[in-house]
């Protein structure tokens, strides 16, 4: 049976991405990524793991069109990120959730809709309920815990029903328990519109638990050195964590990283 990425045209295509940058103090040119090619199909979650400094976050920023790569091509729905984001919003959530301190939770969630001048704000209430933030909708970000802030940032990334969702270690700053709770929350939220998702994480367990495919990058400059499919028969819940096939997959990915 063919996987999602084999039968559909990619929602996100990274083709031969290489990126170099200049170190400000020394003027030295450093290569962050070297010839990374990756297709992500609609409805697919791809995790990217690799050693620190291997260019994972740079890759996410290139995919979002926030950085122009030195070489290579980024296409979202067949268009450049600059063109694509005018018509098909991109969702982005980073390790440090950026919430506007002067806006309440509900207003922060509505921010992308206001920015995109979209009138269909009816589902803000629905989303507030869906992410269990009903009691906190009128609170300000500084009144929330780290986990709740991450949850709001995640919900905001999804509120525009993006075709591509980019997550750069969205739970990296949280403790293990909160991080795992939010992983399950992410799967629940994602199942609503199922955007093509790229998740950068340093947690192999998280990568295997969430993704359909795990991509392993080498140390700098980042190259793809391995790929593992994670088509588990079991449902992705707490029981999966102790399933032998899940443990075996985590071990395989760790072996690629070693």
């Amino acid at each position: 049976m063919k996987s999602a990425s084999e039968i559909k045209s990619p929602a996100l295509r990274l083709n031969g991405i290489s990126h170099e940058y200049t170190v400000e103090q020394t003027g030295e040119r450093l290569s962050a990524l070297d010839g990374v090619s990756l297709d992500v199909a609609p409805g697919e979650i791809v995790s990217i793991v690799g050693p620190s400094g291997c260019g994972k976050s740079t890759l996410i920023r290139i995919a979002a069109g926030l950085i122009t790569p030195t070489r290579g091509l980024t296409l979202i729905g067949g268009e450049s990120p600059e063109n694509a984001r005018r018509f098909h919003p991109i969702g982005l959530a980073a390790q440090e959730p950026v919430l506007f301190p002067w806006l309440t939770v509900a207003e922060n969630l509505a921010f992308p809709l206001g920015a995109l001048e979209r009138k269909d704000r009816g589902h803000i209430d629905q989303l507030v309920d869906f992410v269990y933030l009903r009691d906190y909708a009128q609170l300000y970000p500084h009144e929330l815990s780290g986990g709740m802030r991450s949850r709001v940032a995640l919900a905001r990334a999804l509120i525009t029903e993006p075709s591509v969702l980019l997550l750069d270690e969205p739970f990296g700053a949280l403790d293990e328990l909160t991080s795992h709770t939010l992983c399950k929350e992410l799967l629940r939220l994602w199942s609503g519109s199922s955007p093509a998702t790229v998740l950068v994480t340093h947690s192999v367990t998280q990568a295997v638990f969430l993704a359909h495919r795990v991509i392993v990058l080498s140390k700098r400059p980042g190259r793809i050195i391995g790929e593992e499919r994670t088509d588990f028969a079991a449902k992705r819940d707490d029981d999966l964590l102790s399933a032998p096939e899940f443990v075996a997959k985590v071990t395989q990915v760790r072996a690629l990283l070693a």
Binding site: R61, A64, L66, R85, R86, I90, L92, A94, A115
Partner: peptide, 28 residues
Amino acid sequence: PPGAKDLIVIYDIPRFAAFRTVALPYAL
């Protein structure tokens, strides 16, 4: 913050709107 600048780019917010809705409140 850099993350807020990213959101301005991601949501393709015009320069004046970005100034009014993001930069000005941060500057207040």
